[in-house]
Design a protein around this nucleic acid. Structure first.
Lengths: 342, 342
DNA sequence: ACTGACAACGAAAACGTTTTCGTGAAACAA
DNA sequence: TTGTTTCACGAAAACGTTTTCGTTGTCAGT
């Protein structure tokens, strides 16, 4: 930082005007070959790089996109970010990643901060606490000011916004149907409390499938896992009932892996005594023995698509009043935990 | 973005000078109560937020730290970032996360970009390709210009820089010693090619332990996994030899999980026939059955510590010429894969 | 009535760029 | 000689702040 080299210093040293240096650097025909070379040589020598801040301020564009995720240590979000970064850098944009820690206040702060000059647009997946609180003012505010904003995965349902989401109902349906096709009759579900939309939607798909195949819905087989309590115990209940499930659909990888572990500890054979299918295709599902069948979510594609829509909005002002909703399909990855020998 | 509200607009609307508005907003005593209230009311009404870019430019500080990681979809790096973000936000700094994708050129680009005004300092873990290439010019350049720079986990060895690293030699030593203590005699290691320093160091620790306990070093039991080839086959070789190992030390979680899976497929009992220990305490190690013993790396603490040292450097210019090297200790997490019943 | 102090505000520079609009000199035509 | 181009460059505004240094006007003290 000490003695940072600027256009002004270059100009002074060479005895020319700042504007001359600036033009020479962009090969403007206004500057004579001779002067241009002199400037270029010196610039090269002192290893000059323009100050991005100043350029952004003057251009009123930062060529940076902000992405806000609830947490980083999470396979799915990491994938989305990678996808977004991929598309952004291909289009000459940089990515500024921020965390909300699933907290409303932090999310509000970060959102405002980014919108105040840091970035040209924002990609966001809403914090859990924001859903609980039901306060989306920080978003309405941006929308009102026509600030480019695109939601992914977790989006407010009653705001007119662009969103890229997983087709969770369908995913839940297909996961359940897969178990039914394999002959399961008493299918349990490990899901989230109802206010988490992704869990609720997958549960809706589950119910739809049961219904369609005239299987009885048993309240004892529906476990709403409360993360504030020990998760293990809540899942363990499934194995202590007199009517044991013959299959489990877990709405995420963590619950699926835990269910598998408990099943093995209870000397159940997976998949023969109990089939298990999860959601999200991460490292864990591949690593267990038996490996876990799952509904893959394609986070990378989601990130790419979200970025694509956001950049379109930024570069084409006429899209301001149109809202796109894109569903990213899930697909079944069949592994050992549902693959019966018979 | 349309009709963005600025100090100038506020001043015009209220018939005062820009400086007056600015001062009123910072509660300067120069401004009379009356005017201040008038300004504050209006500012509140139009929901004004200062432009961060302009402030950064004028202050010559962005209150933002850049962090560059090789990849995001990686438990350890995610943890480091979370730790860094934690400390940064506590100190009023924001975090700008960027990816190098383990590529030299991308790393160079991103580093220069960030250094040119975007951030006040950089935290970085070096790309694999940069090590292969051996070109660290983009770093020397920054160091020469006294730009605050701190390395974590993967650092250039012959540059005078601040770095926070895992004590990999010791970690490798302790992992191996743990296996020896449990009675292992033929300990295999799944490690990286020699140019990846973390792998090489852990291997050094492994050799040190073998040596110390007078165990024979067997070249067939040392597997340098080349990620450009199928990993599974390379590990499988271990199970096809006539002198089978009775324990495996894997330098990361992925190799450990894969080794476990292959062992189970070969009808080996873990830990009785074969013990396995990994490195990095992620989700996978906990999820397998049997669960994997591992050397935990404490990425979160590493991120916090790295950020702490960087911020110190930024805020106390007198630290320019001192270089700190901090070792983050690993610790043994004993799980089922090395827990013998006997 | 004159000085001095103080309160309340404005003007302008600065941060590092880009870009528009001159302007002086040389070159050329008449 | 004068007028018109063209060339090569400089001056200055602008982006949105902060901050320093005036500049008023009022009022107390003498």
């Amino acid at each position: 930082m000490s003695g940072k080299i600027t256009l002004k210093k270059i100009a002074q040293h060479l005895g020319v005007a700042v504007s001359t240096v600036s033009k020479a650097l962009k090969n403007s025909p206004e500057i004579s070959m001779e002067t241009r070379q002199r400037i270029l040589n010196y610039v090269e020598k002192v290893n000059y790089h323009p100050n991005a801040l100043a350029i952004s301020l003057q251009r009123q564009r930062t060529m940076t996109i902000g992405i806000i995720v609830p947490e980083l240590v999470h396979h799915f979000f990491s994938r989305v970010i990678s996808g977004a970064e991929n598309h952004a850098s291909r289009c000459g944009y940089k990515l500024l990643i921020s965390l909300s820690n699933d907290e409303w206040d932090k999310e509000r702060q970060v959102t405002e901060m980014l919108a105040n000059g840091y970035v040209d647009g924002i990609l966001i997946s809403v914090a859990k606490q924001t859903f609980e609180k039901g306060n989306f003012d920080h978003f309405s505010n941006l929308i009102q000011h026509k600030f480019p904003l695109v939601f992914f995965d977790r989006a407010p349902s009653d705001l007119p916004v662009d969103k890229i989401i997983i087709n969770d109902v369908e995913g839940g349906y297909r996961a359940t149907k897969h178990l039914i096709d394999k002959g399961a009759k008493r299918i349990a579900i490990l899901t989230t409390p109802p206010h988490i939309s992704v869990g609720a939607d997958r549960e809706r798909g589950y119910l739809k499938a049961l219904n369609e195949y005239s299987l009885e819905v048993n309240a004892h087989l529906i476990v709403h896992v409360d993360e504030r309590q020990p998760v293990r115990e809540q899942i363990a209940i499934l194995f202590e009932q007199n009517i044991a499930p013959d299959a489990i659909f877990a709405v995420n990888e963590k619950y699926a892996a835990l269910a598998l572990k408990l099943a093995l500890q209870n000397n159940l054979k997976v998949p023969d005594d109990l089939m298990i299918i999860g959601f999200t295709d991460g490292f864990i599902s591949k690593s267990t023995t038996p490996s876990l069948s799952t509904m893959a979510q394609h986070g990378f594609e989601m990130g790419e698509k979200a970025m694509e829509i956001l950049l379109e909005k930024i570069e084409d002002k006429s899209l301001f009043d149109t809202q796109k909703i894109v569903f990213i399909p899930t697909n079944l990855v069949e592994r050992e935990s549902t693959k019966l020998k018979s």
